[in-house]
């Protein structure tokens, strides 16, 4: 079995938002939508102040609250753990959005483009009416993953089969791979470093892991 997960190394992330831009470019999301974004966290106060950059988005939970609440079965889950949305089934009730503890979902009822209500030619070409009025979120670039696999490539290793955000990361902070494979890139990272899952107490068992040394690198 395969279980695709993403690993974000917070010790490496520089908060440049290149992953955010790459995601928007890859998936043609509207300006008010960010399937991938990086949160800038500051805590403490001088002289004991800290800063951290945290990439966030859909965590592709093993037990996704969004899926169990969805009344239309639009939110589904693949065998490889990727949580999906069927835009043709979704009624846009927003229940998944209040059920998601990761603020990963978006619903756009009226599109706004980069320069107002009219799309630029590049935006018009890629505009998807099917995403209007329904829930949308990160797909782990499942189309790239599937296409890559069909061509015999390895997601997380071969860029053509890897999510856009991971490919774009300038600091090599994002990794993607199969956690069920003990020798995969992500398995090795999690074996070697300290890590956490966000909101573990909610028992969603996310498919997104954060590597962090607890701030030791700063010291």
């Amino acid at each position: 079995m395969t279980r695709w997960v993403m690993v974000a190394d917070l010790n490496r992330c520089v908060g440049c938002q290149t992953c955010t831009a790459a995601c928007k470019h890859t998936n043609a999301t509207l300006p008010q939508v960010q399937w991938r974004k990086v949160i800038d966290i500051e805590w403490g106060s001088y002289p004991d102040a800290h800063r951290l950059f945290m990439p966030v988005g859909c965590q592709h939970c093993a037990d996704p609250p969004c899926m169990s609440v969805c009344p239309s079965t639009a939110t589904g889950q693949r065998e490889d753990g990727i949580v999906t949305i069927d835009y043709d089934l979704c009624i846009g009730c927003g229940y998944c959005m209040v059920a998601c503890p990761y603020q990963a979902r978006y619903k756009v009822t009226r599109p706004h483009f980069a320069y107002g209500d009219e799309p630029m030619p590049s935006e018009a070409v890629r505009f998807d009416e099917g995403r209007m009025g329904v829930a949308q979120k990160c797909t782990f670039c499942s189309d790239r993953v599937d296409e890559g696999l069909a061509r015999g490539l390895t997601p997380g290793i071969d860029p053509e089969a890897t999510p856009g955000c991971v490919n774009a990361c300038i600091a090599d902070a994002l990794s993607f791979g199969d956690i069920e494979d003990e020798n995969s890139n992500v398995s090795r990272l999690l074996e070697e470093k300290t890590w956490f899952q966000m909101h573990g107490e909610l028992e969603t068992e996310t498919g997104f892991y954060y590597l962090w040394d607890g701030g030791k690198q700063e010291e």
Binding site: D63, M67, G81, H199
Partner: peptide
């Protein structure tokens, strides 16, 4: 909303829980 959080740090290979519903895309 729940907001975001830095969770409890762990070490070692995670216990992998299979997806609750393995529904084909």
């Amino acid at each position: 909303l729940q907001g975001y959080a830095v969770g409890r740090l762990r070490r070692g290979r995670p216990q992998i829980r299979p997806p609750v519903r393995r529904k084909p895309d």
